[in-house]
Design a protein around this nucleic acid. Structure first.
Lengths: 190, 190
DNA sequence: TTGATTCATGATCGATTGATCAACATAATG
DNA sequence: CATTATGTTGATCAATCGATCATGAATCAA
């Protein structure tokens, strides 16, 4: 073929992700994207079909980073505790308090076509699967009582993560977010 | 004076609220508002200074309805349980799954000026105050142990409500939302 | 009835939106 | 070197955005 790209697609996606994450999909204009990425209209549209398609790829870029925060060196209750702690730290450490792009996208759901909604649904489901898997391990190991309502607990833990991210974006005190995580962890120890 | 209004301001605010609630502030165009309220541009701007000012009043209209869901006939643990149940039911019963305008607004925070952000902050704080008040009552009544970390519990309960509303908008199964509420209630009974 | 005052209407504003496209640049291929 | 193929650029598009304003209608007070 001919003429190689002068930029890395990954780099552009990461920069676009930052814009969408901070401003939201609707409020983020393509001018914002041009400025953040250095791309020009024609170029961007040749590489990424549309604003919506670009968003989808930027969203998946975010999902990749998000997935990378999941602990891999521990299992069961320890894995759940570790990840809640990581999420709390990430949420409170961000000076811009952007929250989580997945949660933000869910709130903007109305503005997106079905394909994008499905993508957000799938990423949210992944979070549930993480908890479901490690709760099962925890019960099988005896870290949690055999009678534990694993589904209810998993749903509540998803709720805790979603809450931490929403509250982070609200700009509440770090202690509030820490307390949501701490209370969720305390429940596991009961 | 002269010529009375042909419409009730309350009615217009309620209709505008519905639009903002469903579509979000940025994605809701004034055309949407004109259609929903029947008002014409000049008229709307004469009555409500700007889109942002209209939103603020519509937001406070929502806050009024929201506040009205708080239980007044019970106190302590019973009040908390009752309200979590009411919120779960409202969230899952809504066929449009709009979630909560307060939570939605927090996510759109970046798009709003300081005044509007402060309004959203204040409404979120109200939720915390409800839990704080009834937790104190619960402890003083002996419904909860004296050593209860009331601040942590209040933060977690705010988190539960925020989570229910975010998850409602995500369109998750009603059981997930019910489980978030149920787990929060279970924590109070431990 | 007249004058004053408020309300209602819709055309219109400049700005910005997401998106397109023709022209040109650059690299690999023959 | 010429051809082919892809990448890059920025002018430009129609549509829509939030917002304004001149005009006329409607009501009350005098």
């Amino acid at each position: 073929m001919a003429r190689p790209r002068e930029y890395a697609v990954d780099d552009v996606l990461r920069r676009a992700m930052e814009v969408f994450w901070r401003k939201g999909f609707v409020a983020a204009s393509l001018s914002d994207i041009y400025e953040a990425t250095g791309l020009k209209p024609g170029n961007l549209y040749a590489t990424f079909r549309s604003k919506e398609a670009l968003f989808r790829q930027a969203f998946e870029t975010y999902a990749g980073f998000f997935r990378a925060t999941l602990p891999t060196d521990v299992e069961g209750v320890a894995a759940i505790e570790a990840w809640l702690g990581v999420q709390a730290r990430l949420a409170t450490d961000d000076p811009e308090r952007r929250g989580c792009l997945i949660v933000n996208t869910i709130t903007e759901r109305e503005a997106h076509p079905p394909e994008t909604r499905a993508l957000a649904d799938a990423r949210l489901a992944e979070i549930g699967e993480f908890f479901t898997r490690h709760l099962a391990i925890a019960v099988s190991r005896g870290e949690l009582p055999a009678g534990t309502d694993q589904v209810r607990l998993a749903d509540a833990l998803v709720g805790a993560v979603v809450a931490m991210m929403s509250l982070a974006r609200a700009g509440v005190a770090a202690s509030v977010i820490d307390n949501v995580a701490a209370q969720a962890i305390a429940t596991l120890r009961a």
